[in-house]
Structure formats: structure tokens, C-alpha cells
Deep mutational scan, measured.
Amino acid sequence: MLDDRARMEAAKKEKVEQILAEFQLQEEDLKKVMRRMQKEMDRGLRLETHEEASVKMLPTYVRSTPEGSEVGDFLSLDLGGTNFRVMLVKVGEGEEGQWSVKTKHQMYSIPEDAMTGTAEMLFDYISECISDFLDKHQMKHKKLPLGFTFSFPVRHEDIDKGILLNWTKGFKASGAEGNNVVGLLRDAIKRRGDFEMDVVAMVNDTVATMISCYYEDHQCEVGMIVGTGCNACYMEEMQNVELVEGDEGRMCVNTEWGAFGDSGELDEFLLEYDRLVDESSANPGQQLYEKLIGGKYMGELVRLVLLRLVDENLLFHGEASEQLRTRGAFETRFVSQVESDTGDRKQIYNILSTLGLRPSTTDCDIVRRACESVSTRAAHMCSAGLAGVINRMRESRSEDVMRITVGVDGSVYKLHPSFKERFHASVRRLTPSCEITFIESEEGSGRGAALVSAVACKKACMLGQ
């Protein structure tokens, strides 16, 4: 009897593995994704193909990295998701002549009506938060230079001027797309009239992360975010950046690689679950690469896999709870928690219980395998993109072996128990001629924006502006 049951459990697990095998990517698959990513990057950089390229390769006008001589107080704003952060950054000489960066910050959550109302409502709310922060720190009387981390696709015309191309991540505030974001912020500050600010720089969160990590390690020339969304930036040779005049030196390019796949480059790798996630998203047909990796989508992918296993009578005796059938019910943090389970399955059992399920031991094991399959594919897909960037940098610099540091931020990278190990191992397999160091950014977005502002202020002083 026991043997029969054991055989049935083994057969069930084997069927589960057959279904989950769809998520496995072979090294040849990853090399294919990497080569296609490089081709799209090239198209994004070139003037004649930029418009139709899915990977936009947006110039950021960040050319210099901090040298350690900029000092002063800077205000930093960070808008990239449902939370908005205001930070005071003091850049100065530390002990023994070292450079020191001290920060104080406060988080504000953005109400739904500000995210989806008008641009005026959104930026009025942001300036209200700045006003509140300055009151708390008794700094209303000071006109501070301000660095703005704005983590949406922007076409820069200068370091302090950028046109919002399109909202992502659930934002829909009308009247912002096609307009200068810094102008919208300046107008809102003017409307309030109770404080003055000098907006000197606007950067993407990947750029802010790279600059913040450069402060720790001067070989950091790539910034990457794996959180709600997924994106990367890197220092490109100016001669390859056709959208900006000049051939000397390097400029940081914001790849906006989340949109890779929007022209069909990933079609052969998309599964039924991916198509369902895409169809029910706020932007169907867009940001397809990001939807395979980002935390906004990972939990939902797992939920759809679990429903398939229920329908195949391989999980929960073929019956799903009402909660499990509800879109968004299986949160991405559950994926991390399930994979963090120590082996007694308590954590998995508790999560499934909150979803109205009474799982068996085998159910718990199957749910864990589903989570591992989805998150491992995410790590491997992400590795193909980064390997594409790094191999490109090595080739354009004609280096036999390139040493490089990548600064990384984002909740999936930082909080998932195995993502970074799987990701690092896969990147290294795909970049055999590179020695890569990964560092995690601390308060990256805010500190990085302030350091970019410090560079901009120093330049302005040198130019006598």
C-alpha cells in the first residue's frame, strides 16, 4: 500500500517536472537572447534605426563620474514606483581627507489618484512632500541643488532636461508624456511658492545606482535594477552614441532593455503563462523582457503555473481556492519566502493557508518547484541581457580580458534567497573573457542622484555659470 502511494507521488512529481521543464533555458538559448539583445542595442544607438529599435539606448548626458572633490548639501528625489523618497545628502571631506556622503531620508507613498490623475496632481503632491521634508529638517530658507531620480523612459536633451516617452509600472498621470519632466517639477514648486529649489540633474535609477557604486569602486561602469521592473545602464564610447554629437570619451546610456521583445525577438521563448500575464497587464505587448524578470510579474506567473497544475490534477487534489483564482493573489514576496523555507515546509504551508488552501507535504514541495522554475528562468533571462552589455563593452574597448564592476539594486536581487547566485553564475558562463565584480548599492537611487548633481554643480562652477 505504502509502495503504491510512494509510486503515485513519484509519478505525480515526474509529471510536474515535465510541465515545469518549459521554463528551462539551455545555454544556447541564452546565447541567442544575448546576441539578439546586442543587435537591438546597436539599432538603438544608431541614428537611422533608433526610432524602430525596441531597446532605445537613451543617452543620459552623464559623462563624468564623481571624483571626490564636490562638497555641499544636496536634496535628492526618487520616483520610480508607488513609494517616493526625499533625501538630504551631505557631501563633504571625511576623516583623513576621505570623501564622505551622509544621508537623511523619508519615504512617502503615492496615492492612487496622483498616479493615475493628471501630471499637475502628481507633481503638486511631490512638491508637497518636499515642503514637508524641508519643514522637518528646518531647511526651507536654503535654496538647495536638487537631483531627481526618475525611473521611467526619458529622452534627455541635457542633464536637466528630459522628455517622458511613456509611463510604465502602473503610472498613468495624463499630460506628462511628451513633456519635460524637470519643467513639470519646477512648475509645481513655483505653484507652491513656499520654498526654492535648483533642479540641476535628472537621472534614471540605473544611472543613480551606477554612480553610487562608483563611489565604492571606481571600476563600476554598469548599473542595473532588478526590482519591480528590470533595466540597466553602462558607459558607452561616445563615438557609438549617434544621437549625441561628439566622439570623445564616454557617456552613460540608459538601455531601457525592459522593452526588448516588443518587436518579436522573444516570441519563441514566451510561454502561455507569459501571454496571460501580458494580456492582463496595463501595457499589453510592451516591456516583454521586463515581464519575464521583474517583481511586478513574478508572483503572478507562479500563480498561473499553480492553476495549470491544479487543472492537471497534480496539486491540491485538483481544487483551487477562490483566493488562488484571484489575479495578483500570489505576491512576489511569497516566491522569495517559499524558496527561503528551511525544509520543514512550515513557511510554505503558512503562505498557502493564507490563500485558503490546506496543502499536503507533496503540495508544498511542488509549489516550491514552481517558484524555483519561474525565478530561475528570470535570473537566466536577466543574465543574457547583462552578458550582452558586458561583452559589447569588452569588444568596443578591444580588451582581451576586461575587469568590470556592476552596481545592482532592486528588491528581487536583494531579497530573493537564490536569485543573485543563479544570476551571477549564468552571467559568468556567458562572459568567459571578463572578470566581473557585483556590488549592491546602498540607498543607491538617492545618493547617486545627489552625486550626479554634485558633478553638475562642479561643472557649472568651472564653466562660470
Rank of each mutant, 00 (worst) to 15 (best):
L2V: 05
A6C: 12
A10N: 15
A11T: 15
A11S: 09
K12N: 11
K13D: 14
K13Y: 10
E14N: 15
V16S: 08
I19F: 11
L20C: 15
Q26C: 09
D29V: 03
V33R: 01
V33C: 06
V33A: 03
R36M: 06
R36G: 04
M37I: 14
K39N: 04
E40S: 09
M41W: 01
D42M: 04
R43S: 11
L45A: 09
R46G: 15
R46T: 15
L47C: 06
H50Y: 06
A53D: 02
A53W: 06
V55Q: 01
K56Q: 04
M57G: 02
T60M: 01
T65I: 03
E67C: 11
G68I: 09
S69W: 05
V71D: 00
G72A: 01
D73V: 00
F74V: 02
S76E: 02
S76R: 01
L77A: 04
L77N: 06
D78Y: 09
L79D: 05
N83K: 06
R85E: 09
L88C: 03
L88N: 04
G94C: 06
E95P: 08
G97S: 09
G97K: 14
Q98I: 13
Q98H: 08
S100H: 09
V101S: 02
K102T: 07
T103W: 05
T103V: 08
K104A: 06
K104S: 13
K104Q: 04
H105Y: 10
Q106P: 00
M107K: 10
M107R: 07
S109K: 08
I110V: 13
I110R: 05
I110T: 11
P111G: 08
P111V: 11
E112M: 04
D113H: 08
M115P: 07
G117Q: 04
M121K: 12
M121E: 13
L122R: 07
F123K: 08
Y125A: 09
Y125E: 10
I126S: 03
I130N: 02
D132M: 14
F133K: 01
L134I: 03
D135I: 08
K136R: 08
Q138W: 05
Q138G: 11
Q138E: 12
K140Q: 07
H141L: 05
H141M: 07
H141E: 08
K143Q: 08
L144E: 02
L144C: 13
F148P: 06
T149F: 09
F150I: 11
S151F: 05
F152I: 08
P153Q: 14
P153F: 09
P153D: 14
E157D: 15
E157Y: 15
E157S: 15
D158N: 15
I159H: 06
G162P: 08
L165Y: 13
L165T: 14
N166Q: 10
T168Y: 15
K169W: 08
F171N: 08
K172A: 04
K172W: 06
A173R: 03
A173D: 04
G175R: 05
A176L: 01
A176T: 15
E177R: 08
E177M: 07
E177A: 09
N179P: 14
V181L: 09
V182R: 13
V182S: 09
G183N: 06
L184D: 15
L184V: 11
R186E: 05
D187Y: 05
A188Y: 01
I189M: 06
K190F: 15
R191S: 10
D194V: 11
M197T: 06
V199P: 03
V200P: 02
A201F: 01
A201S: 09
V203Y: 00
N204P: 11
D205I: 01
T206D: 01
V207K: 00
V207D: 01
T209G: 01
T209P: 00
T209A: 06
T209K: 02
S212C: 06
S212T: 02
E216K: 15
E216G: 03
H218F: 05
H218Y: 08
Q219P: 03
Q219V: 15
C220I: 07
G223C: 04
G223M: 01
I225A: 01
I225R: 03
G227C: 08
T228L: 05
T228H: 11
T228Y: 06
C230L: 02
A232P: 04
C233F: 00
C233K: 00
M235T: 04
M238A: 01
Q239E: 08
E242L: 01
V244G: 02
E245T: 05
G246K: 03
E248K: 03
G249Q: 00
T255L: 15
W257M: 05
W257S: 02
G258V: 15
G261R: 00
G261K: 01
D262L: 13
D262Q: 09
S263V: 06
S263G: 10
G264C: 12
D267G: 03
E268A: 08
F269Q: 04
F269C: 02
E272A: 04
E272S: 04
D274Y: 05
R275G: 06
V277Q: 13
V277L: 11
D278M: 12
S280T: 13
S281Y: 11
N283Y: 13
N283L: 15
N283I: 11
P284F: 14
P284R: 14
Q286G: 10
Q286H: 12
Q286Y: 12
L288W: 15
L288I: 14
L288Y: 15
L288R: 14
Y289G: 15
E290W: 13
K291I: 14
G294I: 06
G294K: 02
G295N: 13
G295I: 07
G295M: 11
G295Y: 10
G295P: 13
G299L: 03
G299P: 07
E300L: 01
L301G: 05
L301Y: 12
V302S: 05
L304T: 04
L304I: 11
V305C: 00
V305D: 00
L309E: 00
D311S: 10
D311C: 10
N313C: 05
N313E: 09
F316C: 13
H317Q: 14
H317G: 15
A320H: 02
E322T: 12
Q323P: 07
Q323R: 07
L324E: 00
L324A: 07
T326P: 05
G328N: 13
F330N: 06
E331P: 11
E331Q: 09
E331I: 14
Q337T: 10
V338N: 01
S340G: 05
G343N: 02
G343K: 03
I348W: 04
Y349N: 02
L352R: 01
L355K: 05
R358L: 05
T362G: 07
D363Y: 01
D363F: 01
D365P: 02
I366M: 03
I366R: 04
V367A: 02
V367R: 00
R368S: 06
R368K: 03
R368G: 03
R369M: 04
A370F: 02
E372N: 05
S373E: 08
S373R: 07
S373T: 05
V374M: 06
V374L: 07
S375C: 07
S375Q: 08
S375W: 05
T376H: 07
A378C: 11
H380P: 00
H380S: 08
C382G: 10
S383W: 00
A384P: 05
L386A: 03
A387R: 00
G388R: 03
R392F: 10
M393T: 14
R394I: 10
S396E: 15
S396T: 14
R397F: 10
D400I: 10
D400A: 04
V401N: 03
M402W: 11
R403M: 10
I404C: 11
V406E: 00
V406H: 00
V408I: 10
G410I: 07
G410D: 08
V412W: 06
Y413S: 07
L415R: 12
P417T: 14
S418K: 07
F419Q: 03
E421N: 13
E421F: 12
R422P: 15
R429K: 14
T431M: 03
T437P: 01
F438C: 01
F438Q: 02
S441C: 06
G444T: 15
G444C: 10
S445N: 13
G446N: 14
G448K: 12
A449S: 13
A450H: 12
A450V: 13
L451A: 12
L451R: 14
V452S: 08
S453C: 13
S453M: 12
A454S: 11
C457W: 14
C457A: 14
A460M: 11
L463W: 10
